[in-house]
Design a protein around this nucleic acid. Structure first.
Length: 498
RNA sequence: GGUCGGGUGGCCGAGCGGUUAGGCAGUGGUCUGCAAAACCAUCUACGGCAGUUCGAAUCUGCUCCCGACCUCCA
């Protein structure tokens, strides 16, 4: 099997994945700011890193996965300069800031659960790490890369770049260009250079969330929490840092600078960036309202969709595109994903219950199936190429279905091949891609229903034997009203939920 | 304006120098009481213009569109 390669945003190349410490992997992913409901764009990013997390574990790595909750410190845009995003929301809803944080954190966790996105090993919050952040700021000052102005602390990008020459390496920015581009921001006059950024902000009286520090009563800068928390839980130098593409600059660039300035080394070996989810050809974003909520997607109550889609269909839809590509959400694309998802799940379901007797001989079909299964993992090893892996799986479906249809050629396959297919479908679909079978949950606890359905199907079979098509069709049509689909096959009739 | 990334068949989406991507939709067939499903076959492509090459969707140049970032953002 091929070795795992991943695309490193830092080198802009695919590199072989070699953990810093063999056997254990440290991974940090920038989590959500909990000031409103998560939307599908967030979900796609966390899903992408969930696949990566799952795949690393599948490879036998012990992974410590840290994904933070940002519950303070990000300033809002033009309108409410200097006001904390969470504090703003709190005033709006007349809630205590931490009440807002709790509400949307709960909502976020619930959504992660619905989409079957794994819990991280540690989910630290920014407010819970105020001491670490203040310590890191002091370290940056001590090392000569931070300066205090009127109770606020700024990062000296110019000095940092002169000494290390690395500011902008990750995002491809050039400091000199940034200087001329930077617009007028709050307290711009306090900075030595326009490219400098705040690592501690002095708060005014009406500011709701503030903490005491040696510089002033205030709050930490926008990029500091990730630097402090990744260092605390994963060390100064760890394997993977991930996040959305839109965080590359300034967030990740500044994070790198802060870590180097404080600890003297680059935080992450590999930087991974997930691309944006689009709708109407534009980035889905809660800031500008170009968004559809997950709830509306499930219920179908939105102008953007013709019907509701299950969370697993949405998950599958997202995995049909590579994590580094943009993905355009549309009703027709979701419809296609739904059909594809069902097709794959049906094949998986069949494999799980098939009882194959050993035939002994290894046929051409065996060889082909084996190559194709290996191919699935080759694709995943190639920077987690889920769309290609799924394509390989789809190519295996006709083999599975031919077996199901009792075609002699495919019945000749060996037991090893069937077992390998069985394992491949379950490993890839469930363990790695985290796709649950919608039918498992829908049909659970329905022993009685199974019995009733068997009876109904028996009666319908009798009708059919008597060529009483009217009765047979009535049963089929009436069951359709309950989303139950009847399929007449060679081996008898079976049923499933639509 | 600066930096970067895209434009692939009806739709979504891989590929990134020579090979069928794949899914959905369409078409023809097999099967079926009829359907559905399944199976087999099949039609639509690489924004435009030049160039490099035996050969380009894939490399180069120009050009036209679109997007992201530069400000909180996944």
């Amino acid at each position: 099997m091929s070795e795992l390669k991943l695309y490193n945003s830092l080198s802009k190349e695919k590199e072989a994945f070699v953990p810093i410490n063999e056997g254990s992997v440290g991974m940090y992913v920038c989590g959500p700011t909990v000031y409103s409901d998560v939307h599908l764009g967030n979900i796609r990013t966390f899903m992408s890193f969930d696949i990566i997390y799952r795949y690393l574990k599948f490879h036998g790595h012990k992974v410590r996965y840290v994904r933070n909750i940002t519950d303070v410190g990000h300033l809002v845009g033009d309108v409410d300069e200097g006001e904390d995003k969470i504090a703003k929301r709190a005033k709006l809803e007349e809630l205590e800031p931490m009440e807002v944080v709790q509400k949307y954190t709960n909502g976020f966790r619930e959504m992660m659960r619905i989409f079957n996105i794994s819990d991280p090993s540690i989910e630290p919050t920014a407010t819970g790490h105020m001491i670490e952040q203040i310590e890191m700021i002091q370290q940056i000052i001590d090392n000569g890369y931070g300066y205090v102005q009127n109770g606020s602390v700024y990062f000296d990008t110019q000095k940092f770049n002169d000494d290390k020459g690395s500011y902008g390496n990750l995002s491809g920015r050039v400091l000199d260009e940034l200087l001329t581009e930077t617009r007028d921001l709050k307290n711009q006059s306090e900075k030595r250079n326009p490219g400098d950024f705040a690592i501690w902000m002095k708060a005014d009286e009406r500011h709701l969330m503030k903490w005491k520090s040696q510089w002033s009563e205030g709050f930490p800068g926008w990029h500091l929490e990730c630097s402090a928390m990744s260092t605390k839980y994963l060390g100064k130098h760890f394997d993977i840092h991930g996040g959305g593409n839109d965080l590359k600059f300034p967030h990740h660039e500044n994070e790198v600078a802060q870590n180097e300035a404080a600890c003297g080394c680059a935080p992450a070996k590999y930087w991974l960036h997930a691309n944006m989810l689009l709708m109407n050809g534009r980035k889905m974003s809660k800031s500008d309202g170009n968004t559809i909520s997950a709830q509306d997607l499930f219920s179908g109550k939105s102008e953007h969709v013709s019907k509701g889609y299950s969370p697993m269909v949405v998950r599958f839809f997202m995995l049909m595109a590579h994590y580094r590509s943009t993905l355009d959400l549309s009703d027709t694309a979701l419809l296609a994903a739904e059909k594809g998802y069902k097709k794959l799940m049906e094949a998986k379901r069949f494999l799980q219950q098939v009882n194959h007797e050993e035939t002994g001989s290894i046929s051409d079909v065996d060889k082909r199936a084996n190559e194709m299964v290996d191919g699935v993992f080759d694709e995943l090893n190639d920077d987690f190429n889920t769309p290609k892996a799924l394509a390989r799986l789809f190519e295996l479906v006709p083999i599975v279905n031919s077996y199901k249809d009792n075609k002699p050629t495919f019945r000749d396959v060996s037991k090893q091949t069937i077992d390998k297919l069985k394992k491949c479908f379950s490993d890839v679909l469930e363990t790695i891609m985290g796709l649950k079978d919608d039918q498992d949950s829908e049909a659970s606890g329905t022993d009685a229903l199974d019995g009733v359905m068997q009876l109904v199907l028996d009666l319908r079979q009798q009708a059919r034997a008597n060529k009483d098509w009217a009765t047979a069709d009535k049963i089929r049509d009436d069951l359709a009203a309950y989303e139950i689909v009847i399929k007449d096959g060679k081996e008898g009739t079976n049923w499933s939920y639509n």
